[in-house]
Design a protein around this nucleic acid. Structure first.
Lengths: 197, 197
DNA sequence: CCTACCGATCGGTAGG
DNA sequence: CCTACCGATCGGTAGG
């Protein structure tokens, strides 16, 4: 596991790439686009990065780690399923607001990863979903959640938050707390077993 | 408004393109890929289509029309806001199940439209969202819906269904009715004003 | 970090 | 619908 240090310049390049990939897509973004954005000649980029794909790999797995680290902390908490789901929703909303560009890359551009990286990525996603599903299952077992098919519950819940990172930056003073509150209320009133309330 | 007739061959090409764009993305799909898929030489494609972008335009606006025609029928119905939202959810789920490939293109690849087509597309989307928002507003006014910010209500509701078209084809015998039922229950119990129930 | 450059691939056309 | 072909652009390298 390298990645001990990332130079300031490299971070600049990664950030610029995230923004470009977000709006143009990975395949439609050229290294010329990226070079221009950071004020370098194309060839100079390769002093800092190995390849275009290395950038994609870095961005995708950076986000993957944000999610899986977050989930690990949550599952270790000594709380019930409802509170864990509460925390999972906070996690997703916070990541979406704090990293809108790289989250878009993570969501929409991972398919351009190749072979080993792609399968590693899909494995991480599978395991992340498995982690959430077991929280959901715990909630169902304790009658805290309605007994719906886990897949539908998971997909609906996670999809329902997949618009926050599209909010334009100039509306960025959007109230994080308000978003969490409203989204949570919408989701919870739908997921929670009313008999228990 | 042309498009009176689309030859069988052209339809084949459009369908193959939708599938390729879905899995590889528009920019990463080459006309060579497409030609191979339909069993033609690259240059022969151009007897049926004008350009790569024409394909994207056709696919995007085909879907856009499915949604806006559907919404128009719904808003003309003589029903209350709740029933209209019910119908809107059905519309989205049905389109997602019936046109999984082109809906993915519609959702993820519209950004590759250029200038006039892009702005026409965004205008249609804006107007579609406006139509749904006025249904939501009507529901709020009649105390059928919780009084949340319209944008959050709209985005959460539409996003919550944006996973259905990713269901793999080999699970295609997934029960449409069951999906509608579960998604609707999850969404409704969250959106509906409980004081009214 | 730049100049100079390369092979591969791209969308698309001419002409039949 | 195909053969033959083209200019443009791609990601990336050599060498300093």
């Amino acid at each position: 596991m390298p990645k001990l240090k990332i130079s300031k310049r490299k971070r600049e390049i990664l950030n610029a790439a995230a923004v470009l990939f977000r709006y143009k897509g990975y395949a439609a973004t050229s290294m010329r686009d990226l070079a221009e954005k950071v004020g370098l000649e194309v060839s100079s980029l390769y002093s800092h990065i190995k390849s275009k794909e290395e950038i994609l790999i870095t961005l995708c797995f950076h986000c993957a780690n944000l999610y899986s680290d977050g989930l690990n902390q949550i599952t270790e908490m000594d709380t019930n399923a409802m509170q864990k789901i509460d925390a999972i929703i906070d996690l997703h909303i916070n990541i979406a607001i704090d990293h809108p560009s790289s989250i878009t890359v993570f969501n929409d551009e991972w398919k351009h990863l190749s072979s080993e990286d792609l399968s590693r990525f899909l494995k991480m996603r599978k395991s992340y979903e498995k982690g959430i599903k077991s929280v959901l299952q715990e909630g169902i077992n304790n009658s805290l959640l309605k007994d719906y098919p886990l897949d539908m519950l998971l997909n609906t819940m996670l999809s329902a938050m997949r618009w926050i990172h599209y909010i334009k930056n100039d509306i960025n003073q959007l109230d994080r707390i308000k978003t969490q509150e409203v989204v949570k209320t919408i989701l919870f009133a739908g997921i929670v077993n009313n008999k228990k309330r």
